[in-house]
Design a protein around this nucleic acid. Structure first.
Lengths: 257, 257
DNA sequence: CGCAATATTGACCATCATCAATTGGCGTGG
DNA sequence: CCACGCCAATTGATGATGGTCAATATTGCG
């Protein structure tokens, strides 16, 4: 049986969890010993479908995914974006039925962890149980923040805020370099996430560029003026609860593994 | 030291939890033995404030509360409504800092449970730990549904959807009789929850009444046509995951296999 | 009875959606 | 190598949902 330890991306989950909780050496080891099933997906494929009753959770290794729900008329609301290191359907551990779907936005590979294995793990390591619980709570906090955006922020702010959030989340898994990160989503997808039309996303994006806040080409976002971007989005990172460890040192963590 | 068992509303929490999970006799008893601190609040008071680092969770006994966040310009976004039986800040068990506030919408009384007592309880009763975790996950599912509403549903649908949700949630704690329930919120508060202006809430409300779907006087909502209301809100109750007993059976079955 | 909060109504306006057309990038097959 | 096709990005024009402002009723309550 294959385990997480056999993968080149094995450190992603550890980084992610350590961005929100503190892990012991034993816990790190136990995580890496998790048996996995690898699966690859093409753009647009569903990893988990609305209505499913999963018996496994899915750890993203490469690519980019989103959770979404379709309206009866076919329109789509995207509820979250997910980077490598995320376990977007961790909730399925305790909510039997999926009330939304998870799909790959670009070619994506994922490691599937059996619920039974996770239950076993969290029984042996209560610290991991709390880390996972905490992860689902941060998830909820992000939903709340998106609600605020859609309810009370206008398009320009909303987009700026999303970019700030993604910047920090990518940073937490070591995927930001030189103030840029890979954000491989179409403007239509951004619209579905922010509750805006594609056309409007395009126009607002142009303003962000005109104002010298960002650059966004070929799926790569470069933040030119972090201060101004935060201000434009009224961004306060508290809700991300990325305070698992005060000072993160990814190099050190990577070296240990 | 006072315990939950000494209160007339002691069964609210049990009802609530049993609407989403299955409790054993021992677990029910242990819940009722929780030491509590009682506090009463007037309309508009904060039970928990943005930025707090709580060491206790708050179980609503009477009244009605909401979680909200203020924008820099003073506008407000309400992120959830809470009925007696809810523990709206259960998340504070694992997220140190409050990223929003909790306030009383009408005179409200609450029983505060120390984090340490809850931790103790969940250590002795893993079933309760899972029930609490599940509760926070249902919370998240409701946030997602509200996001969908604000992103993709227009005002009329949005309001109808909210009423459907509240109906089922009140039902779960035994607070619906004769297709009516107490919804003591102003139109301004509904607006802050749905991302609408007070004026628009008023107009949409009138349409719901004109169409014979509901009545809403003196804080009491009467649902005149449940079918039509669900249809108007495109309401699908799956996301409330009010299938605690069913679900637990599946889990137990799964565990046995 | 009278104040204050809430609900209601009307007029006007802004953000953003919709529709439609054009451009540009890129891979594929001839 | 180029034409074709497809998808994403872009632009323009028009309109609708819902916001804002302001005034007036209504209700609750001390």
């Amino acid at each position: 049986m294959r385990t997480l330890a056999s993968l080149p991306q094995r450190y992603r989950l550890i980084h992610k969890l350590e961005s929100i909780a503190n892990l012991t050496e034993d816990e790190r080891k136990a995580l890496l010993d998790l048996p996995i099933i690898l699966r690859d997906y093409a753009t647009g494929d569903d990893l988990v479908r609305d209505g499913d009753r999963p018996r496994e959770c899915c750890l993203l290794l490469e690519g980019f995914a989103c959770r979404y729900k379709l309206m009866p008329d076919g329109r789509r609301q995207i509820m979250s974006f997910h980077t490598p290191g995320d376990i977007p359907d961790l909730q399925s551990l305790h909510l039997g039925v999926m009330d939304h779907a998870l799909s790959a936005i670009v070619p994506t590979s994922a490691a599937f962890l059996q619920h039974s294995d996770i239950r076993d793990l969290t029984q042996r390591f209560p610290g991991l149980l709390h880390a996972f619980w905490r992860d689902t709570l941060v998830d909820g906090a992000i939903f709340r923040e998106w609600m605020i955006g859609m309810g009370r922020r206008e398009a320009y702010q909303r987009l700026a805020h999303l970019l700030c959030e993604m910047m920090l989340r990518f940073k937490a898994v070591g995927l930001v370099s030189d103030q840029s990160f890979n954000m491989p989503v179409t403007q239509a997808e951004v619209g579905d996430a922010l509750g805006l039309s594609t056309v409007h996303v395009n126009r607002v994006l142009q303003k962000l560029r005109e104002n010298g806040l960002i650059t966004w080409t070929k799926g790569t976002v470069a933040v030119l003026n972090w201060e101004a971007l935060q201000e434009a989005g009224e961004f306060d990172p508290t809700y991300l609860h990325q305070d698992g460890r005060l000072y993160q040192d990814h190099e050190a963590t990577a070296a240990r593994i």
